Lab assay of single mutants.
Amino acid sequence: KLCLVCSDEASGCHYGVLTCGSCKVFFKRAVEGQHNYLCAGRNDCIIDKIRRKNCPACRYRKCLQAGMNLEARKTK
């Protein structure tokens, strides 16, 4: 099974979405830290295992598009 954000090996369902541990922690920190990420490109950066750290804005956008939600952990 692959992470729906970066296509690395998924470690489980986190915040409602099948993700790897790295994307799970990234999403939690992004939401709780209330980061205002900005993409230096055109908001279409490739997010994969190798390049997932290059653009936090696009990675966060991809987390949201996949359906990640901090509240999902509280309902399970």
Rank of each mutant, 00 (worst) to 15 (best):
R51E: 14
A66Q: 10
R73H: 06
F26Q: 01
G12I: 06
P56N: 13
C55M: 00
S22F: 14
L4C: 13
Q65V: 10
N43E: 13
A30Y: 06
G67M: 02
S7V: 03
R61I: 07
L4P: 06
F26Y: 03
A72F: 04
F27M: 05
E9I: 10
I50D: 10
A57M: 02
Y37V: 06
C58R: 00
E71P: 09
L18R: 10
I47V: 13
R59F: 03
K24P: 06
E32S: 09
Q65S: 12
E32W: 04
G33R: 09
R73T: 14
L4R: 13
C3Y: 01
H35F: 13
V17P: 04
C20F: 01
Q65N: 08
H35K: 12
C13F: 12
M68T: 02
G33T: 05
K28T: 12
K76G: 13
N69E: 11
P56C: 15
T75P: 12
L2D: 09
K53L: 11
N69D: 10
C3R: 01
R52T: 06
F27Q: 00
A72Q: 13
G41S: 10
Q34E: 09
R73F: 08
E9L: 14
N36K: 14
K24C: 13
F27T: 03
E32H: 08
C45Y: 02
V31P: 02
L64G: 04
V17A: 12
L70V: 14
F27C: 03
K49V: 14
C58S: 02
G67A: 02
D44H: 06
H14F: 07
A72C: 15
A57E: 05
K76P: 13
C6V: 00
A66Y: 11
P56W: 06
D48W: 03
K62V: 06
L38W: 06
L64I: 15
G16I: 01
F27E: 00
S11R: 09
K28D: 08
Y37S: 05
L64Y: 05
Y15R: 05
E9W: 15
K74I: 14
G21L: 10
A57W: 02
G21Q: 15
H14K: 06
G16Q: 04
E9R: 14
C6M: 00
C6D: 00
V25D: 13
C45G: 01
C63I: 02
V5S: 00
S11F: 06
A10P: 13
H35M: 13
Q34D: 09
F26M: 01
G16K: 04
A30L: 03
C20G: 01
N54K: 15
D44T: 11
L64D: 04
F27P: 02
Q65P: 02
D48M: 02
A10W: 02
V25F: 12
L38T: 10
P56K: 06
L4K: 15
I47M: 05
T19P: 01
K76F: 13
R51A: 08
R59T: 02
D8N: 05
N36W: 05
R59A: 02
L18K: 07
S7Y: 06
H35R: 09
V17C: 15
C3H: 01
A40K: 12
Q65F: 09
K74Q: 15
I50W: 11
A10L: 08
G67I: 03
C45W: 00
C3Q: 02
Y15A: 07
A10C: 05
A57I: 02
V31R: 12
K28S: 08
S7M: 08
N36I: 09
C55H: 00
A57L: 02
C45F: 02
Y37K: 06
A66C: 10
I50Q: 14
G33V: 09
K28M: 12
N54W: 08
K76I: 04
L64V: 14
C45Q: 02
R51D: 12
E71A: 05
G33E: 09
G41C: 12
E9H: 09
K49L: 09
K49F: 11
I47Y: 06
C63Q: 02
K49T: 12
A10R: 03
R52S: 06
L64P: 02
C13R: 10
Y15D: 09
F26A: 00
H35C: 06
L38Y: 10
A57N: 04
K1A: 08
L70D: 10
Q34F: 04
A10H: 04
Y15W: 13
D8T: 04
K49R: 12
G41I: 06
C20V: 00
A30N: 04
C63L: 01
K74E: 15
Q65M: 08
V17M: 03
L64T: 07
A57R: 05
G41P: 00
K62D: 03
N54S: 07
C45E: 01
S7C: 09
T19D: 00
D8V: 04
V31D: 04
K62R: 09
G41R: 14
R42G: 13
K53N: 09
C3E: 01
E32V: 09
N36S: 14
L18I: 14
L4F: 11
H14V: 03
C55G: 01
A66N: 11
Y37C: 04
G33Q: 11
R52M: 06
L70A: 08
C6Q: 01
V31W: 08
C3T: 01
D44I: 03
T19C: 15
K28H: 12
E9A: 14
K53Q: 13
V31E: 09
G21V: 08
G12P: 03
